[in-house]
């Protein structure tokens, strides 16, 4: 049985096709990445399979059940972490979490305190007084209280500081070890690389590739910025470099290819400073999925 199976799903808003013939298959127990730039249809797909949006055509099943028809039963098995968290302002975090948990048959209320401590969330504060990051923590706890079989995470780390991001990843890995399937949507490629085995790439509403993360890594471009102590005579850059820009002793370029080649080349230079940056997803797509 597959965890998620989406077949030729379409969602149109008048003439605008938010998602076009999307098909994906997520196996049980895997952490499946879902990458795409902002506005590419990631959230639309997630919201469609959760029943928030009424799809134009196509089918979606979750753990063997029709997600579009039997939404209520299907959602019993799902933990959902939205990208933007909106909760009832007048409630405290504890009230919100208890209210949320009471909707499920097998929610474990005793987990609230330990998880709140783990994420350093003050349960007595009103939602309206919580920062974006703290609302997110509340949402994370909310998504795992009922031991879901499938976790759907939409931009889960936005608003979390690096320490909390790491704790969050640890929690997700732990849940995954217990058998929970994770559907991880993000526009940050390094997160996907860290967490996932496979990833679907969505662009302008269509799946443009389903890749092994290893392949995605090799395709990944790095932005390189170096400051030379002595500018080399030979200005040829390693194979795989593009868009080079010289500015006196400063050089910036983009590099695609095995990282060893780049390191080799860098080690031969007389440098003051070198920076390798992961480009944003949009520029990666500009490079690889243009056609």
């Amino acid at each position: 049985m597959t965890a998620i199976e989406v077949n030729n799903l379409n969602k149109h808003y008048g003439d605008f096709h938010a998602i076009k013939n999307v098909s994906i298959e997520v196996e049980q127990g895997e952490i499946y990445g879902f990458v795409g730039p902002n506005g590419s249809g990631k959230s639309t797909l997630i919201r469609s399979i959760l029943g928030l949006l009424k799809t134009t055509s196509g089918s979606a099943s979750i753990l063997g059940m029709d997600a579009l028809k039997n939404g209520a039963e299907v959602r019993e098995l799902i933990g959902y972490l939205p990208s933007e968290v909106h909760y009832y302002d007048e409630m405290s975090s504890r009230e919100l979490l208890e209210y949320s948990a009471r909707f499920y048959k097998n929610a474990d209320l005793s987990k609230i305190d330990s998880l709140a401590e783990y994420f350093q969330l003050d349960l007595n504060k009103k939602i309206t007084d919580l920062s974006f990051g703290n609302k997110k923590k509340c949402s994370i706890i909310q998504s795992v209280l009922h031991q879901p079989k499938l976790l759907i995470l939409d931009e889960p780390t936005s608003g979390l500081d690096p320490l909390m991001q790491n704790r969050f990843f640890d929690l997700i890995e732990e849940e995954n070890k217990k058998g929970t399937t994770v559907f991880f949507s993000s526009h940050i490629l390094s997160e996907i690389q860290r967490m996932c085995d496979r990833a679907a790439v969505i662009r302008e509403g269509s799946i443009s590739a389903i890749e092994d993360i290893q392949v995605l890594l090799e395709k990944q471009m790095k932005k390189v910025r170096v400051v030379f102590a002595t500018v080399p005579e030979d200005k040829t850059l390693p194979i795989g470099s593009q868009h080079e820009k010289w500015n006196d002793s400063k050089l910036s370029f983009e590099f695609v290819g095995p990282v060893g080649v780049l390191i080799d080349w860098l080690s031969k230079q007389d440098l003051h400073d070198a920076v390798l940056v992961e480009p944003d997803l949009e520029s990666i797509f500009m490079n690889y999925y243009q056609q």
């Binding site: 928030l52 939404g71 209520a72 299907v74 949320s100």
Partner: peptide, 16 residues
Amino acid sequence: EGTSEFLLTKPVSRQT
């Protein structure tokens, strides 16, 4: 207030 996303992703049907 944007809370319908929370409510509608709970295991309850819209009719309920």
